[in-house]
């Protein structure tokens, strides 16, 4: 996708970086003059995707998570990638309440939250290679120009 602005961050798959990732993306998105609701939506979606990479992608090992953002007009594209174990069945993983880790009190709502809070979501995953989540949010505030 063509873009007017771009940024990329890479960090260890440690849970303290979940807050770091969502705050960085929210700061980058602030140039789109978002509403508070739009900012909360993207922070929540990023938090879900990064948490998935940490818990499911890398499990007990540590690897790298990459977050790339591109702005094109009033659209923000967010790509979250890991090189972890991948998802066996993406369709099943995206079902509401499906979780492979009920013992960790995971609710199985991560993908449902991402789908609801963002305008587009695509998931690519390959076993033992990793998972890429691409999400797009359209910001309404710039439409009025």
């Amino acid at each position: 996708m063509e873009y007017n602005n771009y940024m990329k961050i890479e960090f260890d798959s440690k849970s303290q970086n979940e807050a770091f990732a969502r705050v960085v993306v929210a700061s980058f998105a602030s140039q789109l003059d978002p509403t508070i609701e739009e900012i909360t939506d993207i922070k929540t979606a990023v938090s879900e995707a990064v948490t998935n990479s940490i818990i499911h992608g890398y499990e007990s090992s540590t690897g790298l998570v990459t977050v790339t953002c591109k702005i094109n007009g009033n659209k923000l594209e967010i790509i979250i990638e890991d090189e972890g174990q991948g998802i066996d069945n993406v369709e099943e993983a995206m079902q509401p309440l499906f979780t492979s880790k009920p013992q960790l009190e995971r609710s199985g709502m991560g993908f449902t939250v991402m789908e609801t809070f963002m305008d587009e979501i695509e998931v690519y995953s390959e076993l033992k290679k990793g998972t890429t989540i691409r999400m797009v949010k359209k910001f309404k505030s710039l439409n009025v120009e």
Binding site: A19, T40, T44, E48, E105, S107, M109, G110, V113
Partner: peptide, 13 residues
């Protein structure tokens, strides 16, 4: 100030 789906797990638990 912020909650994602991890919070649902905590509350349901």
């Amino acid at each position: 100030r912020f909650m994602d789906s991890s919070g649902i797990g905590v509350i349901i638990g």
